[in-house]
Nucleic acid binder design. Sequence first.
RNA 1: UGGGGCGUGGCCAAGCGGUAAGGCGCCGGCCUUUGGAGCCGGUAUUCGAAGGUUCGAAUCCUUCCGCCCCAACCA
Length: 576
Amino acid sequence: MSESNAETAPAVSGPSDFIREIVAADVAAGNNGGRVATRFPPEPNGYLHIGHAKAICLDFGVATEFGGHCNLRFDDTNPVKEDVEYVDSIKDDVRWLGFEWHGRELYASDYYEQLYQFAEELIRKGLAYVDSLSPDEMRQHRGTLTEPGRHSPYRTRRVDENLDLFRRMRAGEFQDGAHVLRAKIDMASPNITMRDPVLYRIRHADHHRTGSAWCIYPMYDYAHPLSDAIEGITHSFCTLEYVDHRPLYDWVIDAIATEPGRRSPGEGGPRQYEFARLNLNYTVMSKRKLLQLVHQQHVNGWDDPRMPTVSGLRRRGYTPESIRDFCARVGVARKENVIDVGLLEHCVREDLNRRAPRAMAVLRPLKLVLTNYPEARSDEFEIASHPDDASLGSRTVPFSREIYIERDDFMEEPPKKFFRLAPGREVRLRNAYLVTCTEAIKNAAGEIVELRGTYDPATRGGNALDGRKVKATLHWVSAAHAVDAEIRLYDRLFTAEDPEGAAEHAGGDFISQLNPCSLEVLGGCKLEPSLGNAAPGSRYQFERLGYFAADPDTRTGAPVFNRTVSLKDSWAKANP
RNA sequence: UGGGGCGUGGCCAAGCGGUAAGGCGCCGGCCUUUGGAGCCGGUAUUCGAAGGUUCGAAUCCUUCCGCCCCAACCA
């Protein structure tokens, strides 16, 4: 392509959402010198979930798209809820999702001293005061949605008195709750956030990073804007519930920006933009509820494959690519939304269909004995690992007289549209032979315990020389060579599309909406030998069944697989 | 009853005064050694409602309706 063409070529993809539109306009206008800096600011009080993944894709995505950078900043201002376990898991998850913060691992707690000095500055400017109302009294004074609040009697304390009290707060002279530092804004504001918000509270608690160095801790509304300003963030993205906080965000930055060298939002400093959080049906997304599921052991930890957490999805077998694709398809807007989990499932299927090697596994085995196949003999088939991608190579699959097929691939009295095996019917064993069922053996209870049949030696590989067709192809595993495995099947965690909504109507809590069948553990599953040493985390398509990933519980000789997602199944859909 | 945000097909979502993109889902058809995958076609005379402005409105104005958020010393 010539250079002039390159310059005149229309943009392949412009801004794809309102956020990128704003950033593009800022860059075009040269705001902040054309610089773009974002941040992803998780509080380390829980594991990341798919909703965070959306935010991560936005924060890191926008930064790289516009040649900027994104800081990973832990919003660790509440020591009683936070823990290093969470910061470690968050770092793992962000990295696994495919994002890099290039050493910019930052903490709000890094700024505690600076934040404290800013607070003294606010006091000196008469913009903050120490209040000594009890939490309950403060609530009384705050007013209601429709009535203005009242001034605290402590609101008029002198600057020197405020400074003295605040220093003694820091020095640990007071009990928790005795005093707080408040911004002096407007107790009559219709926006309740602006009614003299608390900036600092006393918490005699050890912090996971600063230990016992502090006994006063800044509030989010104070620490967040200043952290953004300190780091030179240009675009600060958060969810819609913070829209009402934006005036306070701006107020805090403006309040300390009169000093030389500091910039207010109006002067090119950080600006907050809000977007709608991600909601998924058939699950819950709040950290509080996820924490409850873990603590009450309704699931087996934060990384339970049924959880919408990043670590849960990872263990389930999701790929980072599929999650990023999902976030891209879902879009970024300001409308409340509930995304169908079906879209998430579509995204993994699409990704794994392209990349996952195929293998055969029988979940619920039914033995088929080929009576015309010599007992001592066995065959080997070299089978491509992917039907459309030779680069994935092949593996050797043994065949013998006794093989396992899926129980529901046989019906003694098949209905009209059932194409699979039935007495007298011929089907193909994938990549092997055409076989015909001759007999179903039953036990005393009348249950089918074994099938007898014959194979056609002239159909090696699966095709008949005479061109005769069969309606079905079954997966299979040679009984003599099979590897036994445990396979875990997952269904949605909740039976209701909207667990909290359904619970409200039923008068219970969301726990009552749990799906009792969300986990089904199958033992004695039969795997083809190539699967015997699958490394934990490795993903396969088990032909005709779905995508499966080896679980960390896998032990040598005892594989454990999780079903990530089933294959689309038009037979099952039409015959529920 | 105060403030704020939001309403485009079943679920998302473009659209920015010139006559409704796209994805998922769904419905048909083709193809197929995975009832998978792939391919082709269909799926909103209408944008919460009603008025108004305009040659022309999902886009501008007015009113109304509905949903969500805010009264933690949580984030």
